[in-house]
Amino acid sequence: RYSLTGLIHAPRLRPRFATNFFSTDQFFEDAEHGELPRYSFIEPQIIGWDHNDMHPPFWSAAPGLVWDPPSSVLGGEELLARIYDAVRSASSLHGSNHLNTTLLVTFDEHGGTYDHVPPGTAPAPTAGAPAGQFGFRFDRLGVRIPTIAVSAWVPPRTVVNEEHWATSVIATLREKWRLGPPLTARDAAARTFTDVFTLDSPRTPEDWPEPVARPVPPLHESLVPLDAPLGSHARAVFAGALALGTELEVPAPPVDLSTATGAQALDAVHGLLDDLFPRLKG
């Protein structure tokens, strides 16, 4: 229930944890009442048990409790279906609704799907920057990743063939809200998503597709033995979280990870994360 994006960028985002990080339940409530902010970034549960990020879990045959036990990618489909339904059914006469809300679904990876098209060239984010590993200068694109735009202003069964980049998200936000100059040469050259909204009159929600998410299989408790000692991967993850708390001067309950059980380590880290993300407690 905590934000991995927030933790990764904690030195920069720490002042926003108490004011801008909310639960997904808050998103659904705001969508129903027409109170969505002008921009929302929805992050699936990426860390911990029963995660719903469509990412295959880490698994190890090593003894001890693992951080990321087997779970189903169907959890991601179920989450996406609920978000889609919330946008489609948003009918408030004031504020946000299905007519003025766009749901943009994008991914950070291609899910292991083979891509037969060689990546094209692209400007390096920073001209003249030194080369990285193996002489790579970040002057080409990566494999193609899926992206879906859900809006009342997009024609049905639309397939967009124009090339967009991951930085098209940044370019679109900059254009929409006049956020200033480009962050790098990459988003300066990226095509925005503006040209996909081509209808003269909006589609009614009854005309939108109606996906049905498949049931998410439950995670059996035998796969999460919280009374077991920590495995090597779990120890590393918990140690990283506690070290971050120390860096941010957020106290955590003392725990010896070399002897702690899964339950003891979780109690310590949950106490730390509850302090960091006061609106995500639960």
Score class of each variant (00 low, 15 high):
L179H: 04
G128M: 10
L248P: 01
S222I: 13
A171I: 05
L276A: 05
E247M: 11
S222L: 14
I145Q: 08
V237I: 12
G128E: 06
P156N: 09
L104M: 00
F58K: 12
T19P: 01
V160Q: 02
L280D: 00
V143C: 12
L257I: 08
T158G: 05
S258K: 06
G111M: 10
L223G: 05
D25S: 05
L248E: 02
R1Y: 08
G64D: 11
W153N: 02
R12P: 08
E249S: 14
E206K: 15
A241H: 12
E206P: 04
E29T: 06
R144E: 15
R140M: 06
N161T: 15
A127I: 04
F134N: 11
V73I: 12
H164V: 14
F197E: 01
N97M: 12
V269G: 01
F136H: 13
L179C: 09
V150L: 10
E109C: 07
S89P: 00
R235E: 00
G282L: 08
A31R: 03
T5W: 14
Y84G: 07
T192H: 13
P278C: 10
P156S: 07
G120E: 13
A268L: 15
P251A: 01
L272N: 03
I145N: 07
L199D: 04
W153E: 01
D274S: 09
S96D: 02
L99T: 05
P156V: 04
D50E: 13
A185N: 13
P70R: 00
I8Q: 09
A129H: 13
P155A: 08
R137G: 12
S40K: 01
P229D: 02
H110T: 07
L219E: 08
S89L: 13
T101H: 03
E247W: 09
T121H: 12
E162P: 08
L65I: 02
P217A: 01
D25I: 04
L276R: 07
D200E: 03
T19E: 10
A241Q: 12
V250W: 05
F22A: 08
D275K: 05
